[in-house]
Amino acid sequence: MCLQDTSFPLRAVGLLLILTLAGCAAPVSKPPQSPATATPTVTRSTESPAPPSPPPARAAIEAVTQQAREHLIDGQYQRAISLAERGLRMDRRHWESYRILAESHLGLGDRQQALKFARQAVRFCRSDCHGARELLQSLQ
């Protein structure tokens, strides 16, 4: 409420300015470089995820990922793989699930698959990606 009250005079001044300037502004040859507000149809479709916004499935993903990590540490690669796959079913771009898959395949001696999963891990990782990048480098 408070913000609205203080912004009102500003808006009124703005409106006056618009009316004045719009009347005398000539066409400008250089297009503005400002970010988009009005967007063509195609663009709108690509920028909006489907509402209604769901509650995050983070807890579930974290739970299976934690179990997968534990099995990976214990050398139970097959179980780590099936848990990491459960993580991917919840979020197909979950980078850590890919990292666990890469490490597990490496543990099982399948370097080719490990490399492919490691690439996916690096591709989808957004923060704290040092481990994933190191793994990929070691496999390349």
Partner: peptide, 20 residues
């Protein structure tokens, strides 16, 4: 290359609308 722009809306008006 750039195409010639036919304004959909006066650029100043557009800019101000966004600023407000």
């Amino acid at each position: 290359s750039r195409a010639k722009c036919q304004w959909r809306e006066n650029p100043v008006y557009h800019w101000l609308k966004k600023w407000l």
